[in-house]
């Protein structure tokens, strides 16, 4: 994998942050490869926003080393700022200005030439489906439009690393899907996205790698598939052409649960190649005809609940 060899877009080791005696980040390690979507997944209060604030130079960490876009966060915050774009949870648009004026404001602050600024603003308004609303004050925008404008403003400066802090929280399903498409397009253009979300579906849809954050620590990291495989509860579903096949397989496999109407069997399995081989081997030996075989891994919900523990016995004491 060539991607492993390039310098990480974000690298953090031993990141710590406390507010008073409340420990928010407790030794966080992150490694985000350029041109990928990295998702920090966690419940409310897990430390997602604090992480974004630290990585985007808004607040400083108590301890830990961070490199963003190749620059040390503590020593070269200005170089980091020049390379990043941030769209936070709360819209960072000027409500009294129109959508277009907001974009032109960003263009001016990035010292783009007037023509170039206008061109970019027009293109972003088009790209984000805001051309019609471009002349209206942002205060009149709906939640989804405002979020799109917010992200469009972030893109005016062509950042190489973009932080999206819960970009779809509070959006309706359609706006959410639009936002997902925008993120995919950005990554296709080579941008690195650091995305926090509390929606498992969102991480599953978008992220190349997911880190599950719980009480200020990463409790698991990997691709969505890797994470799902770590959790028991996967199974193989076998569908047969006739009840005879079903009966025969049932006799061989023993601990399966059967669904007579669908002529299907549900066999517990971790989904690994080895266990599948064994299963298929046993069916083959008896020449049992299988119409369809599908492997079901647990979804991220299962993973999340298993990794972060039941929310009811969440630690109430800070330490």
């Amino acid at each position: 994998m060539t991607i492993k060899q390039s310098r990480p877009a974000i690298a953090a080791t031993g990141l710590r942050k406390s507010f008073g005696d409340q420990v928010v980040l407790d030794g966080l390690d992150l490694n985000v490869q350029p041109g990928t979507v990295f998702s920090l997944l966690g419940a409310n209060g897990a430390g997602k926003t604090t992480t974004v604030k630290i990585l985007s130079t808004l607040i400083s960490a108590d301890a830990g080393d961070v490199q963003v876009a190749g620059h040390d966060l503590a020593r070269e915050p200005d170089a980091v700022r020049a390379a990043i774009g941030v769209t936070g949870q709360f819209s960072a648009v000027d409500n009294l200005l129109t959508g277009e004026e907001n974009l032109l404001l960003m263009a001016d602050l990035h010292h783009l030439a007037r023509d170039e600024g206008r061109r970019r603003a027009t293109r972003l308004l088009e790209q984000f489906d805001l051309t019609e609303a471009g002349g209206k004050p942002a205060s009149t925008y709906s939640g989804g439009m405002r979020r799109r404008l917010d992200l469009a403003m972030t893109l005016v400066g062509s950042p190489r690393v973009i932080f999206l802090d819960e970009p779809t929280t509070g959006l309706d399903p359609r706006s959410r899907r639009n936002m997902w498409q925008i993120v995919r397009d950005l990554v296709a253009g080579g941008v690195t996205i650091f995305l926090t979300t509390q929606y498992l579906e969102e991480a599953d849809e978008l992220a190349d790698r997911i880190a599950v954050l719980d009480h200020g620590r990463v409790v698991a990291e990997g691709t969505a598939e890797e994470l799902k495989r770590r959790i028991p509860g996967g199974h193989v579903r076998l569908r047969f052409a006739d009840p005879q096949g079903l009966d025969a397989a049932m006799r061989v496999l023993g601990q399966a649960s059967r669904d007579n109407d669908a002529l299907a069997l549900r066999v517990p399995s971790d989904g690994s190649l080895r266990s599948l081989k064994t299963l298929i081997g046993r069916l083959d030996d008896l020449a049992i005809e299988v119409d369809e075989l599908s492997v079901h891994t647990p979804d991220l919900d299962d993973v999340f609940l298993a990794l972060t523990g039941d929310s009811t016995n969440e630690k109430v004491t800070p330490r």
Binding site: S56, T57, R81, A82, V86, G88, F90, S91, A92, L109
Partner: peptide, 13 residues
């Protein structure tokens, strides 16, 4: 109280 200042703070200005 609005988010725009937070944006300015993360920008190289």
């Amino acid at each position: 109280t609005e988010g725009i200042i937070t944006r300015f703070r993360t920008m190289h200005i």
